[in-house]
Nucleic acid binder design. Structure first.
Lengths: 344, 344
DNA sequence: ATGAAAGCGCTAACAT
DNA sequence: ATGTTAGCGCTTTCAT
């Protein structure tokens, strides 16, 4: 279609942005009054308010939060960093955290940091440039630079999913090593002759596993074969782990502590495929009590952590900090629970 | 601790925000030069650049992206709405989308909309107030108001996870009804005498199921018992679904089309618990080819959609639009594939 | 109850 | 290669 220089077709023309100025002009008031009508309607007379609301409807005005954030130095934005978006452990925490924050008028800027801790620093910097009102970090191990940056930002920092006596600011979590200890004590009480571990490639999973091995060997000496993957946990890795244990490590039965339920699920499947009885031949302890763990055959013995509660607690201490200026309980240890079901 | 009026303790004092002005003063240049050094270093002399970089290091300066966004009318922010953060279907799409966008310098503002479509409008408005450079929506069914708002924003809109000939702007997805048709044809070819469905409470799941029933009944008349949950899919619901079918609907064997793999997994578990053979007594077709589907016993026959590819494609057409000003291929149907494994 | 003025920290012309 | 001048669209005083 031919068109003349400088002319613009309808589809190409950028819609003229509607500002408070525009709305005010239509309603016959100044821009400031529109601002007030939106932020505190009680400060504006009823009839003015009505006219402003009409003008907003008519124009389809959407306030420019960027300008507002710049002027007020409040963004109503919370920044969150998680290792993985697809890992149910993190996504369910973020889900409950996000819901509560959203109810309080905040939105979530979310990024994945992956398994490599060094990736985190750049992401933190990028996030801070958005001038969030707070930042949520996963775990309590961060680089010196990361700590410096978030501290310099002068905003509340919540570390989630791991407890520390010395968080950057606030934290909500549990002690990962303790879960390994608890699993080891359970296995020992149950009298399993042999034990092994299967672990995914994240640092906290490794710590849980190491704690299991340490405690078990303290209770009763004996080798504990360990399969360590350097990837995320998947069901296939669980199957593979059991196979390696059985075929390559001379493991001929006993209890297996897995760093996550999905790995444990894989062990169950592989055991079934090989005609091994659970828990008589192979016993399995998982971690996470994820969806379906209780409904597997046999039901999975696992360590339960209330991820939703972590998210809610994180939101609560944050909102409290916003309100009071200081958090009453900045360090929260929500603990865990070993759930004995049929698999061990 | 007593302290004088107006005095501030160290811990209370908000860190003085470092601006480009500050950095420039230290480096002996103007604020604009600092801006240039950051956005296009080639425009600044080597020695100036070095001094500026020193000043940035020394001060720990983090650019204020809010101010930048306001001034340039570019936020480098992409807004995304998904029904659920914990559903692997959506999180894996978002993951691959987010990774590619992040590599291109964009960040993701992410919100959950839930199962209720009406919740979406308010969230869209909130997101648009951040002045994102583009918006990603799940599915192609949105309210008239939602369409109006995103259109008025004058930014690219990508609808993902569902194909439409008439998207708001661009779309990447597949035709959900076609998957039901394909499953029905497969079931018919395989000669299953009886069929049933189990579906979760989302609108697209319902459409897949309805398409299955329609096509199957077109191929060969006969009732198709349907279990419809109005919640998200879980393994427990899958077990429950099979139980209801068996105990309450007089379903005594045949093929079951599930609206997701997690439901199918539950059916498998319940069948195993009841000592039913799969696929001889109960055959199962899932949807999604989720992690582990191939490793279940028996491996799950399912419909595979390449969710990561959706995310990547969405990022690609968006980045292309940013670059060229118009997308060459705004509507992408990535299709699906029925994978016949052992369960049906 | 409403308005005028200043300014948040940048980027985008336009100089030089 | 660097600086000057204007805004971007709001919120925040301070007036009236």
């Amino acid at each position: 279609m031919a068109r003349m220089k400088g002319e613009q077709t309808t589809t190409e023309r950028k819609p003229q942005r509607v500002t408070m100025e525009t709305v005010g002009k239509i309603a016959g008031v100044s821009q400031v009054t529109v601002s007030r009508a939106l932020s505190d309607p009680s400060k504006v007379s009823a009839k003015t308010l009505a006219r402003i609301q009409d003008a907003i409807e008519a124009t389809g005005f959407v306030p420019n939060g960027v300008a507002g954030a710049l002027a007020s130095n409040k963004s109503k934005l919370i920044t969150a960093l998680v290792p993985s978006l697809t890992n149910i452990v993190y996504s369910s925490m973020i889900q409950s955290f996000g819901r509560r924050m959203r109810d309080a008028g905040y939105q979530l800027l979310l990024s994945e940091t992956g398994l490599d801790p060094r990736e985190e620093d750049a992401t933190i910097a990028a996030h801070l440039s958005r001038r969030p009102d707070a930042i949520l970090l996963t775990g309590v191990h961060h680089s010196a630079q990361a700590r410096r940056m978030v501290l310099a930002a002068g905003i509340p920092v919540v570390e989630i999913w791991e407890y520390s006596d010395t968080p950057i600011d606030m934290c909500v979590g549990f002690r990962h090593a303790d879960t390994g200890h608890a699993a080891a004590e359970f296995a020992h009480r149950k009298g399993y002759a042999r034990a092994a571990t299967i672990s995914a490639g994240d640092e906290r999973a490794r710590r849980r596993k190491a704690a299991f091995v340490d405690r078990l060997q303290a209770l009763r000496p004996g080798a504990v074969p360990q399969i360590d993957f350097d990837t995320h946990a998947t069901l296939a890795r669980g199957r593979e782990g059991l196979s390696q244990l059985l075929d390559g490590h001379g493991f001929d039965g006993g209890v297996i502590f897995c760093s996550s339920d999905i790995l444990a699920n894989g062990v169950l499947v592989e055991a079934q495929a090989r005609g091994l009885r659970v828990p008589q031949d192979i016993a399995v302890i998982g971690f996470g009590d994820q969806d379906g763990a209780a409904h597997l055959e046999p039901p999975l013995t696992t360590i339960r952590v209330d991820r939703e509660a972590f998210g809610r607690a994180a939101a609560d201490i944050l909102l409290d900090r916003f309100k009071t200026g200081e958090a009453a309980v900045p360090k929260v240890d929500l603990g865990f629970e070993l759930i004995a079901r049929g698999s061990a």
